[in-house]
Design a binder for these strands. Structure first.
Length: 272
DNA sequence: ACCCTCCTGTCA
DNA sequence: TGACAGGAGGGT
């Protein structure tokens, strides 16, 4: 489900709701989730909630002596949700929860139909930080992007999905970014001209920033921490629009498969 | 670069 | 019934 804009939306909401709160209990209901040293979480204060790549990270301060922070990381993968209830929580959601975090001020429910999501506890920030560059950080400028792309034979859309160079871009925004940059997703990533790379960088920033502004995209079942859907779905130009007219030129949008995943492209706006 | 796998649900 | 779904790790 969630890519950078969706995870960012949840992180901002949860930071506002949870920061300063205290964990009273952490209950793992799905045995597939294995979380070491659960007991250490009880009584921890939540310093902040942040997004790193596609992960949601709760920075926890243990009570009393050991003041070294712990990092509780949630990766929602395809269908994960973190739902926040200021009170006890919706009983229907609680029944289907993979995990329930009880705070002094409310209940955080981890739901995840396909159960691909993960929950991990890290001891240091270094273990939390992703290898790739945050695409909306100052670290990603033209020079850095050029270096990252250098000589890569990988098709551009496939390249955008790899989390070891840029983090946070998934299948929806990879197609949308290629469209916004007017680049064929099958072009070798390392073969772009200076002008094309500049377009790509602008597209990455523009698409992700706009998607965050609209609280992400709900294509099928994304919900934020308050159970709301993402408004950017109205602004999708190509994703999920196979056969429908391109919003820019009217040419039917085409769908094809790269790496066993759907890619959408306007043949006229993104010539090969 | 391709293949498969983890899991469950929905749609044509 | 089979295709497909916003992710990612593994194998070849």
């Amino acid at each position: 489900m969630p890519e950078l804009p969706e995870v960012e939306t949840i992180a901002r909401q949860l930071d506002a709701a949870l920061a300063g709160g205290r964990l009273r209990a952490v209950e793992i209901r799905d045995a597939r989730l294995r979380l070491a040293s659960l007991a250490r979480l009880n009584g921890c204060r939540i310093a902040q909630v942040r997004r790193y790549g596609k992960q949601l990270v709760l920075e926890l301060i243990p009570p009393r002596r050991r003041r070294v922070a712990l990092w509780l990381c949630v990766h929602l993968r395809m269908t994960g949700r973190l739902l926040w209830y200021p009170g006890r929580g919706d009983p229907a959601e609680l029944r289907r929860a993979r995990a329930v975090l009880t705070l002094d001020r409310g209940t955080l429910v981890f739901r995840d139909t396909r159960r691909f999501g993960t929950l991990t506890l890290r001891e240091t920030l270094a273990e939390v930080l992703p290898a790739g560059v945050e695409p909306l950080s100052a670290a990603l400028d033209a020079a850095r992007l050029t270096k990252l792309l250098a000589n890569s034979p990988t098709p551009l859309k496939t390249w955008l999905l790899r989390q070891d160079r840029l983090v946070g871009i998934g299948n929806i925004y990879a197609s949308e970014i290629c469209f916004a940059a007017r680049l064929d997703p099958r072009r070798p990533a390392g073969g772009l001209s200076n002008g094309e790379r500049a377009r790509l960088l602008r597209a990455i920033r523009r698409v992700l920033t706009a998607a965050i502004r609209h609280c992400g995209t709900t294509f099928s079942d994304f919900q934020d921490s308050l159970g709301r859907t993402g408004g950017y779905v109205r602004y999708l130009k190509v994703y999920g629009r196979a056969g429908q007219p391109c919003r820019a030129c009217g040419t039917p949008v085409e769908r094809f498969v790269q790496q066993q995943r759907s890619t959408f492209r306007c043949p006229r706006c993104q010539p090969g």
